[in-house]
Design a protein around this nucleic acid. Structure first.
Length: 413
RNA sequence: GUGGGCGUGGCUCAACGGUUAGAGCACUGGACUGUGACUCCGGGGGUUGGGGGUUCGAAUCCCCUCGCUCACCCCA
């Protein structure tokens, strides 16, 4: 048996990596323009970090983490998400000395789930976190930035949904009210949701079962149960979004799967992703920094699923641009020798050149150049050698001309 | 963890249980000795995912197993 990659761990092949690069470069440019700076975080953290941040009873912690003991017996985990690490670093390096810290990161995350379209065991996220700002305009600014990012990429059909999950003051009150309601329609709920009644009743609102959607249709919306502070915050986030020209639909059934969210949550979905239709999601987490031992610090953040984004961009026909590449064909030993220096100079000038190696002659060389997808073929044979020129052929139009060695770079850009 | 679909040259797929498992594309050589794509002719390439069973005979039928994929759960 040949060795294959581990299930759910994928190779991103050359034809695909171009769009990934486009995504990363666009993120870097857009996020930087909002004052976010890149932070590079480790892929492994102490398991306890995730237990305390994501929540011990969440699916991620209960059954999806890649946890192991290292050689000293310390419990470590391959990060299942990025926010916990960012917050850990924020506290550890006392970045709270500044009024607001805007960070972004990108890299692989790991969750032990059954792979399917848009979901893998190693998957990549680009995340952004703004730590230290409580103002509702922070929420709106971050969401606007994300929409701008999608806009610059040309992503079609992105839909923004927002909701508020309240705070430690008002969420328990709502929870009680919801449990009372769900109890009344208990017999129409699916098995899963009946169990959730006791553990996490909010999730019943998010259930995709037809019976549950109907049964919870008349459930009291959380946004009616918010305390004065949370309600005011939510209203101001929405009007701030409106001011920025960012259209948002309120979806009170949207519930996040991580425990640390408070107040604003949001999700951006798109068709074409199959069942996993969220391409980005996030929200406010005002309690997490304090929970992890730092000073009380209100925060807002989000993460983008890069495979899902790449999938959507591919469907939309958006590819990263590769610069035109040339193929250099030398005929004979003397030409090959001289060619070494010529090719080096073109490359130093920033022009990509692939050398066609082997002694197959011009015909074979041209064929290889074609198969390589070269935009230009550069031929150096005995005639050219004598005249101090190369023949440059445009592979698309079949036009060709002879140019001097020093001027060739300008003809193959 | 549960369910559905699919595994045949590098790729896309054929082959009523019956010769030596074929075709297109790709690769390679030639027609064309300094010009790719188009045309024509030739060539290489397969343990039919793996194992077992039924049969005179299995790519085909049965069982097991592995892999891929989609969906459930959940999430980016």
């Amino acid at each position: 048996m040949t060795i294959t990659a581990v299930k759910g761990f994928n190779d991103i092949l050359p034809g695909e990596s171009q769009v990934w690069r486009l995504i990363e470069e666009t993120a870097w440019r857009v996020f930087s323009s909002y004052g976010y700076a890149e932070i590079r975080l480790p892929i492994v953290e102490k398991t306890e970090l995730f237990l305390r941040s994501i929540g011990e009873t969440t699916d991620i912690v209960e059954k999806e983490m890649y946890s192991f003991a290292d050689r000293h017996g310390d419990g470590l985990t391959l990060r299942p998400e990025g926010t916990a690490s960012a917050v850990r670093a924020y506290i550890e390096h006392k970045l709270y000395a500044r009024p607001v810290t805007r960070l972004f990161y990108r890299g692989p995350m790991f969750r032990y789930e059954r792979p399917q379209k848009g979901r893998y065991r190693q998957f990549y996220q680009i995340g952004a976190e703004a730590l230290g700002e409580a103002h509702p305009r922070m929420d709106a600014e971050a969401i606007e930035m994300l929409m701008r990012f999608f806009g610059e990429l040309g992503l079609p059909g992105a839909v923004l949904n927002v909701n508020s999950l309240g705070c430690p003051e008002c969420r328990p009150v709502y929870k009680e009210r919801l449990i009372k309601f769900l109890d009344g329609v208990k017999d129409r709920l699916c098995e899963n949701c009946r169990r959730r009644l006791g553990t996490n009743p909010l999730r019943a609102l998010d259930c995709k079962g037809h019976g549950c959607i109907e049964a919870t249709g008349a459930a009291p919306p959380i946004t009616d149960a918010l305390c004065a502070g949370c309600k005011d915050h939510f209203d101001r986030v929405r009007s701030a979004l409106h001011e920025r020209g960012t259209e948002a639909a309120v979806n009170h059934r949207m519930v996040r799967g991580l425990d640390y969210y408070t107040k604003t949550t949001f999700e951006i979905t798109s068709t074409g992703l199959g069942a996993q239709n969220a391409v980005a999601a996030g929200g406010r987490y005002d309690g997490l920094v304090a929970d992890l031992g730092g000073p009380a610090t209100p925060c807002f953040g989000f993460a983008v699923g890069m495979e899902r984004l790449a999938l959507l961009l591919n469907e939309a026909g958006i590819k990263g641009e590769a610069p035109p590449m040339s193929a250099f064909i030398a005929l004979g030993g003397e030409a090959a020798k001289t060619g070494v220096g010529l090719v080096r100079r073109w490359r130093e000038a920033g022009v990509p050149v692939v050398e066609v190696l082997g002694d197959g002659g011009l015909k074979s060389g041209m064929k290889k150049a074609d198969r390589l997808g070269a935009a230009y073929a550069i031929i150096l044979g005995e005639d050219e050698l004598k005249a101090g020129v190369v023949t440059v052929k445009d592979m698309k139009t079949a036009e060709q001309r002879q140019v001097k060695w020093d001027e060739a770079a300008g003809h193959i850009k």
